[in-house]
Design a protein around this nucleic acid. Structure first.
Lengths: 212, 212
DNA sequence: CACCCGCATTTTGTATTCAGAATGCATAGT
DNA sequence: ACTATGCATTCTGAATACAAAATGCGGGTG
């Protein structure tokens, strides 16, 4: 077995994203590099490299002499991000191989139908949602597009733990995913793209109420 | 006057992009950090920070233990990048304020009509093209989208100096810009978006012949 | 002659150190 | 009493030092 060797900065980035997803960092708070580095058991150098990467993805902001802080959240930015992701996912879906889409459509439908626990925490719901969209775009040949999407979605992660899982919205999300899968089963790619856009817009509206 | 204070990593990033545009770095070649740092008169630390930023934008690649290299070019990646930029610029145009678009339409038309020197070097042509697209999107309220676009376009920069300026393609580009501006003058936003997409696709095809 | 192993060199990855800017508090002056 | 100024502290930004991995070369061996 080939053992993996990854730069510290990448491991640190992943760990920080993990903690961010767990809600350990409040938006708007400063990063104390020395403290965080000690906590992670690394030096400031690779930590700063990870912070710079995250700043490039919009997760952090930086200002001269004042270091990094977790980017604050706003309705405006959330709307901007959703518009971007909707456009990029649409493009990814449009450029996917129709045959592949037909092949995965049943699995997409199945995943959408097996309803998550009504009381599942938002982390579980979000993870399943990510998996579903990941499968949906698994046939996209545009690797740069997928990388870009991953970066933009990282910038959206801090919005996810603002909401608590509720019964009705999860059902809506599930229904919308079914709709997309059904379109794909029928080889209706334009319809699937429209449904995907509607899914993002709908998800955005469900979320907006929870953002200050 | 408030004097500007920018981190070294940003100045280095800009300088590297400048040199890249001037064709000083061949795609596929390795970066020697010590040499480059000495050349720029800085230490390796902020240089590496700049390199990491550029790697995030796709200008560089990095592999464990082997450092950074300028990303090689390929027809496949160029097509991917054009598809992305076309989609993002379309979104930016669609979300712009129609009134603002109407206001800048005459200027867009004027810029498109004043034909660049037939013998202008590609750098000049590219710069004018960038300015035109910048003005076109100047009314887009989605700041995250504009930032994202800037990053993706940075990743495309290394393709620009692969082509030499030619008479006919520049005229085509100019005509396509006129078409877009005219649509905006007539308040035909969907038509302008279609023309913008066509402009990117056309520009891509003109460029593809020059890529190995 | 080809191939492989081991050592020396080069270069990256990470840690540590140093310098300079920002922040906050205390004190003096009005 | 309030403001402004100077100083101490804290933290970031950059440079340097150190460790470890990769590369290249030379000698030895099949």
């Amino acid at each position: 077995m080939a053992i993996k060797r990854r730069p510290l900065r990448e491991q640190i980035r992943d760990e920080l994203m993990e903690r961010l997803t767990r809600g350990e960092f409040a938006p708007g708070t400063d990063v104390n590099e020395a403290v965080l580095a000690a906590e992670l058991g690394v030096s400031r150098t690779p930590l700063r490299e990870a912070l710079i990467t995250l700043a490039g993805e919009g997760v952090l902001e930086s200002s001269q002499g004042r270091g990094f802080r977790f980017a604050p959240v706003s309705r405006k930015e959330f709307r901007e991000l959703v518009a971007i992701v909707a456009a990029l996912e649409s493009l990814a879906l449009e450029s996917s191989d129709p045959a592949h889409l037909r092949k995965i459509a049943p699995e997409l439908l199945g995943m959408a139908q097996e309803f998550p626990d009504p009381v599942a925490d938002h982390a579980t719901v979000d993870r399943r949602d990510d998996e579903w969209h990941g499968l949906l775009l698994s046939g996209c040949p545009n690797q740069r597009l997928l990388d870009l999407l991953a970066g933009v979605k990282a910038g959206m992660r801090r919005y996810e733990n603002l909401v608590v899982a509720e019964d009705e919205p999860v059902a809506r999300e599930s229904e919308e995913h079914c709709e997309i899968a059904r379109r794909l089963l029928e080889d209706d790619l334009p319809g699937a793209v429209r449904a995907l856009r509607a899914n993002w817009v709908g998800g955005m509206e469900r979320m907006l109420a929870h953002i200050p």
